[in-house]
Design a protein around this nucleic acid. Sequence first.
DNA 1: AGGTATTCACATGAAACTATTCTCTGAGTTAGG
DNA 2: TAACTCAGAGAATAGTTTCATGTGAATACCTGT
Length: 406
Amino acid sequence: MVSQVQSFFEHFLKENFIFQNKKFLQANYLPDLVMHRDDFMREMASILAPALKGDRPSNLFIYGKTGTGKTLITRRVTDDMERIAKENNIPLRVIYVNCKLRRVADTEYRLIAQLAREFGRVLPATGLPTDSVYSIFYELLDSKEQLVLLVLDEIDQLAKRAGDNLLYNLTRINTELKHAQLCLIGISNDLVFVDQLDARVKSSLSEEELLFPPYNAVQIHAILQERANKSFKENALQPGVLEKCAAYAAGEHGDARRALELLRVAGEIAERKSCQYVEIKHIDEAQEKIDRDRLYDLTLNQPRQYQALMYALLTLGLKQQSIVTGELYGVYEQTCHRLKLRPLTQRRISDVIGEFEMLGIAQTRVVSKGRYGRSRNIVLAVPRVSLPKMKELLVSSLGLNELEQV
DNA sequence: AGGTATTCACATGAAACTATTCTCTGAGTTAGG
DNA sequence: TAACTCAGAGAATAGTTTCATGTGAATACCTGT
């Protein structure tokens, strides 16, 4: 007898009308040619070109919102340069670091240690003074004649956490190097980031600047079309699907990455349902699924204390429209008591509420209620339909189930 | 009525503390010559 | 005497707590009409 699972798989293999090759829709795919960005590519290439002759190019600062192709273009250009350099025996080295990665390159010490690691030197995560990590890095960098292009992606995150001291050191590093030369390429999502920098850092970091504008709906549509042709089977998309996808993404400040993800997830939904086509309604479902998954993921990956607070927040949120800090703290304390957890101070909780806002779980507004003090009004920013499920997840994750619900 | 002083209930900021992980250094110990 | 062990001093970092100060407007309290 054929098991149900087996027949499911057979069915699955036979009945795939949708995908041809999904990889073109995945986030790490690096196309040879980035659409609607030719002029940026040319400009960046011409700024960086001196590197191939052994001259140090101007430092470059790139900014633009998420999903506008900054990282993609930079990777494309620097990859090509590295290849050409290799073919012609030019001592050029490209180092790409994403500064947002927690516990990798988000502080001064860690960034420098990470760079040293790129040169093949293993450094411990802690224990050494920062100065000595610096001098190790200098030594490695200056050990031979070479030109290093250092790409710092999400550099705003780094500056926020580590202070601009670090950037200052990096921009001046060339004056101390005898053999090697360093060229900085900073990439930032934050459009006002440069203005907040120390003037000296600002001027030397952004000797050249590139601003990537968001894509408009027409451009996103073209991008989707191009990738869809490669990844979907012929006629797998119903008319209007791409348009709808593009419209969604254009609404979200022209984020091409988001659009591609949306299309991919919609395809996966259609595939799972064994549909012949990706239909427009699948886009809506995909949008919902993406949001939902993100939310549940967020819920489950919080530390216990945060989950306790979130539980309190949901409990109150189900009962009333808006919540004030004091109320929430009270319920949170009760929750902690039930969990035999030592409650954090109100000060700390205040910050955690701020983090929840950052994560898009809640919206807050500081209001003064006159004689009755000043407090934060907290409103849940989560679709109401997700609340019970979220609460359920929390209950099981916290081990609250056998206890009486408040 | 109109003006101003209080007061509440937190927000917000800065500094200090705690705990963990890890290196480096130098004193004491051990084993072999 | 060289090699080894091990405790203690220092670092980096995350997550807090402690202490200090700030704040917007509803109310309480005056004041002169």
